[in-house]
Amino acid sequence: MIKVGLFIPCYIDQFYPQVGIATLELLQKIGLNIVYPLKQTCCGQPLANSGAEREAIPICKNFVRNFSEFDYIVSPSGSCVYYIREHYNILDQTDQVKKVRQNTYELCEFIVDVLGMEDLKIEYPHKVGIHQSCHGLRGLKLGMPSELVAKQFSKVHQLLKKAKGIEIISLGRKDECCGFGGTFSVIEPEVSVKMGKERIRDHQINGAEIITATDMSCLMHLEGIIRRQNWDTKVVHIAEILNCNRL
């Protein structure tokens, strides 16, 4: 039986345990042998995006130590997965590092591409807006970004549209950035919040009750704004929706 390692990024671990739980439960219901290595911390991205790639190396090494034994590594965060795949080139490319880079998947990508599943027998009778997180969309190519002249698709839409009762709303700007951007959110707080407000507005005027995404970091930012504004739109991570199933 294939061995799957569960990677729960640091901020999900600390602030959004329910997203980790949903991911774990979902993968267990699918019938996978899934293990959460207890000594994991973070992928290293928060530092690297701020320019401290070197300081991140011990973090990256810790990640590789924890995960190199698995056939697949799955995480409910496109951004972290993108970082591992794309930026672990700063490590010596040992067999373990190569293996980890090759086999780390974002949750939806893992379900669609590796497991070959689309219909997870979900029931989700809500109006949902999908926020296409940039690192998932443009980095991991979970969909075709609107800038490119090529057949449009989205793995997240593929999974969600199978849900019973769901209504996926369409957006004015279907894949504009939410303005989180890691340290960008505190280096440029005004622009960051402005971008976030407008993303939320786009979902609201198109009737979304719930905004979902493959990245909790985008949602953390949007939720922070929503709560400050006392708006009633909810944010729910994609793993929590996919876990609402009858498998």
Binding site: D13, P17, Y36, L38, P189, G224, R228
Partner: peptide, 22 residues
């Protein structure tokens, strides 16, 4: 706290995922 000027911090859970998992 630059984050908090126009955004709430996340509502903090009692336990982390790791604690829950244990």
């Amino acid at each position: 706290n630059v984050w908090g000027r126009e955004r709430e911090l996340p509502e903090v859970p009692r336990e982390s995922f790791k604690q829950w998992y244990r």
